[in-house]
């Protein structure tokens, strides 16, 4: 990352954050726009989850990372805290690598 890119991302993000508190009395998004914005966030998060769990660059990330993520996701679905889920995912991945799985 270069400094201009970081600053652009930071300013843009701050702008998005400020929009709501600044404009909430004047800006009324249609229900459809709200749904679309919320849904595109969901799609991006899911896409990021899938690609960051399964790929590194253009290739497959190996089995240990998705296996760890699966353990963390199962815990999260069973209402474990986020901290427990993250630590379990990392520990599983690290353990599998220690055993020689890629």
């Amino acid at each position: 990352m270069t400094l201009p890119a970081i600053l652009l991302l930071a300013l843009g993000t701050y702008g998005l954050r400020l929009c709501g508190p600044l404009l909430h009395s004047r800006l009324t998004l249609s229900a459809r726009t709200r749904v679309l914005l919320a849904r595109s966030g969901v799609v991006l998060l899911c896409t990021m989850a899938a690609t960051s769990a399964l790929t590194t660059g253009h290739g497959f990330a190996g089995w240990s990372r998705p296996a760890g993520v699966l353990v963390g996701a199962a815990l999260a679905l069973r209402r474990a805290s986020f901290l427990v889920a993250v630590l379990a995912a990392a520990a599983t991945t690290a353990g599998l690598r220690l055993l020689g799985l890629r």
């Binding site: 919320a38 849904r39 969901v42 799609v43 998060l45 899911c46 990021m48 989850a49 899938a50 960051s52 769990a53 990330a61 240990s64 990372r65 760890g68 993520v69 963390g72 996701a73 999260a76 679905l77 986020f82 889920a85 993250v86 995912a89 990392a90 520990a91 599983t92 991945t93 690290a94 353990g95 690598r97």
Partner: peptide, 25 residues
């Protein structure tokens, strides 16, 4: 070696899992 790369997908999953209950999303 510490499995830290598994933390990133977990952030996204934890944020997205509740929203996935809605069928169209």
């Amino acid at each position: 070696a510490l499995g830290l790369d598994a933390a990133e997908p977990m952030v996204f999953l934890a944020l997205v899992l509740p929203a996935l209950r809605e069928a169209p999303a």
